[in-house]
Design a protein around this nucleic acid. Structure first.
Lengths: 223, 223
DNA sequence: AGTTTTGCACTGACCAGTCAGTTCAAAAAG
DNA sequence: CTTTTTGAACTGACTGGTCAGTGCAAAACT
């Protein structure tokens, strides 16, 4: 670390912490948001290494220095982007499960609601999803541990519902919770990415019903 | 970080008469194979852009010049690697489906056999799978069209079996062939990658039976 | 009030390092 | 002999990160 200013940055950092609800404006936060949006599309298209900081800055409409004013490094920007995005997904899944439970639905209904929530998320943030999938199983990367943590948070939501379903005898107690959760996530992920990539004109309901059918085993049973 | 510099490139030149297995000629082909293997692991770990040609050459145990003697460019090497790998997968899936059909199995049995074939493939070539998933939904990349072609070849095998299953009234005629195929592929892909990444000690049979159960809708029915 | 100071947020030219790709003479392999 | 590989030097473009400096709005001061 090189101290490149006569005045202590540490102190300033503390007093300049953006107030949570107060500043509706928040110039800094707005800039960071713009950088997230720029980075997410570029990295989804080209990958992390192939995307330059100059590109991100240009797309966001800020100077390169601004990127480094707001984030310690390119990797840190990406890592925080990852946390931000998966946080949104996890919250969305959790809300869908809870809402379904409150409405008195079964656990299978909750799973179905989560599938829909997943589709809605991917529909809204296709680039982020793309980027997430592309990075998830890589190794030897700086943000690997971060990725593990957020992945686990998201998968845990699905696993919880599966576990409750087994306990309530709605689901077979022979299923492998972890593997089934992975498989379900994969099902939604890949189907949705293919949807957005190759048939973006189809409706969400359409895709949802196809996956719903698969989930409830109404595939092998003939009409 | 690169610690493996055990010296003597000069000496290696003399002992380089390694003809593994002795493929009866094809020295060139053997070199290309070594380069494939080196490239696939490195790119799976780090991504295409973050992997340098020098690294690939070093890992393969050849000189940098050799890479460019055998491939026109880094991209071309990668593209041919992609074709090579997906070719193996497609052949494997097709064989599994055919063998199941010959054995007089139902279409659902064929699907199950393909799931197993997929798992076997991923078990044998985890790095390739990883790399494939990471690149599949990217856009604006040089090898995009190549990727589309090979993807379609692989998915078509699954779709064909689904179509036959519908015609034979084994599967509901309300299923969406394309979407269901995507979903099945995603199910296997993600479950298998998670398996290799987080629980590599589990047996293939174990994973297969979990996915089999999901396929045949034996999840929501209680024991 | 008007004037000066403060310091946050941002800028963009610049630097030091990296990498794909080239070249080529010479050696090894067959 | 021909084909293939070697290995090292070299180039030229590109990139992550830096830093001295700018603009401006709120605070401090008179």
């Amino acid at each position: 670390m090189t101290a490149h200013r006569t005045v202590p940055v540490t102190i300033r950092a503390m007093e300049s912490s953006n107030a949570p609800g107060g500043t509706g404006g928040g110039r800094r936060e707005a800039t960071r948001q713009k950088l997230y949006e720029a980075a997410v599309t570029l990295i989804a298209e080209q990958g992390f290494s192939a995307t330059t900081v100059d590109e991100i800055a240009e797309r966001a409409g800020v100077a390169k220095g601004t990127v480094y004013y707001n984030f310690a490094s390119k990797s840190v920007l990406f890592e925080e982007l990852l946390r931000h995005g998966v946080g949104l997904l996890t919250a969305s899944l959790r809300e869908a499960a809870d809402r379904s439970a409150e409405g008195g639905g079964s656990r299978v209904d909750a799973l179905d609601a989560m599938i829909r929530a997943g589709l809605v998320f991917i529909d809204r943030y296709p680039s982020f999803t793309q980027l997430y999938v592309a990075e998830l199983w890589r190794t030897n990367r700086a943000w690997q541990s971060t990725l593990m943590v957020v992945r686990q948070e998201a998968v845990a939501v699905v696993e919880k519902v599966l576990r409750e379903g087994v306990e309530a005898d709605e689901l077979s107690d022979e299923i492998d919770i972890g593997l089934t959760a992975s498989a379900l996530v994969g099902m939604v992920l890949v189907a949705a990415l293919d949807w957005k990539a190759f048939q973006p004109e189809r409706s969400l309901d359409d895709v949802h019903s196809a996956l719903s059918r698969l989930l409830q085993g109404r595939v092998s049973g003939n009409r």
